[in-house]
Write a protein that binds this DNA or RNA. Sequence first.
DNA 1: ATCCTACAATGGACGAAGTCCAAGTCAAGA
DNA 2: TCTTGACTTGGACTTCGTCCATTGTAGGAT
Lengths: 138, 138
Amino acid sequence: MGDLLERLRARGWRMTSQRRVVAEVLTGEHVHLTADEVHARAAERLPEIARATVYNTLGELVALGEVVELSTDGRAKRYDPNAHRSHQHLVCTGCGAIRDVRPTGDPLAALPDAERYGFAVSKADVTYRGLCPDCATA
Amino acid sequence: MGDLLERLRARGWRMTSQRRVVAEVLTGEHVHLTADEVHARAAERLPEIARATVYNTLGELVALGEVVELSTDGRAKRYDPNAHRSHQHLVCTGCGAIRDVRPTGDPLAALPDAERYGFAVSKADVTYRGLCPDCATA
DNA sequence: ATCCTACAATGGACGAAGTCCAAGTCAAGA
DNA sequence: TCTTGACTTGGACTTCGTCCATTGTAGGAT
């Protein structure tokens, strides 16, 4: 994780202060931030960073496979820096909290050929939903 | 399926021409329309129907469990009238086409208790992704 | 160390998707 | 048929994201 900046440089990324800050914000906390949250945290260190730059940088990180984009709720997309360990997501139906989870087996295996309709199926994104402990008692 | 209007009436729905048209548009074609597409099709029969009415009606149908809301791509939500037969979705990464699919087993069973973090997990939404036959050859 | 230039950042306008609300309309029970 | 509360309308507004012309700069070349 800590060598994200190394990997990016090795891939020919031009290293700007803006990109560095965005990458650091993402890897600093293992939570699932929205683009605006990333922008807010980045702006604490680099006050004049533009929203468009954050969007661009996030898009590049996603394209490079360093970050996973989630749209669990039809609202703002969230960015998950935990891209190198395959996992799924558990979302609270009350407060929207998100946890990374690792189900057993390969979710793809549950889809028989007869249900693939000729698609070259390459991945399965699973969103488990339910009330988190805090919301259950509240 | 055809008795959706019956069920709605039985639940105390006030039956207006707008609601009838929206319900008919959804059940008429077994595809996954966006709210704007539903509005466009409804407007063919009822030209002055408001967008807000379509949104309201779709929201009510979802709340009643008659329709399932999908946000597979972070763009416009889609509405799936096939709510009474449990299924998942297969989405083309090229063109966005969506098919209903039925994996084997219960996706929830793949999430061990140790991975539930105290959540009362109640459902699992699975999105399989891959290229459809048309996009694969193009 | 300095220069060049292609790549990156800026910021403000724009667009898509969806929500809100005050005023008008109407379904259906009395 | 009358009444009334639920429903619809349409336009303003919000949120999330994209676009683009201009300005800035990282990093290789000299």
